[in-house]
Design a protein around this nucleic acid. Structure first.
Length: 80
DNA sequence: CATGAGCGC
């Protein structure tokens, strides 16, 4: 399933994201979205993983603390 | 190359 991860610290990298979700299951892909013009982080990202692992990750990570901020994790919407 | 609600090229 596709997961949307928001409210991330600007210092969070795609690898950091993967490390967060790996404990819950196979991480198909994990990436933090960066601004195409400046390259700086937009503070949110996407993670793809099995359905069961995704549901577990949402319950454990949504609202959890990361870098001093409470991150948001929920199912992502279809790409625009 | 800036910044803080929002959904990726």
């Amino acid at each position: 399933m596709n997961l949307f991860v928001g409210n991330l610290p600007f210092t969070t990298s795609d690898h950091d994201l993967r490390g967060l979700f790996e404990p819950f299951g196979q991480v198909d892909s994990a990436r933090v979205i960066t601004d195409r013009e400046t390259g700086r982080s937009r503070g949110f990202g996407f993670v793809e993983m099995p359905d069961d692992a995704g549901r577990a990750a949402i319950e454990e990570l949504d609202g959890s603390d990361m870098g001093g901020r409470n991150i948001v994790v929920n199912e992502a919407r279809p790409k625009r």
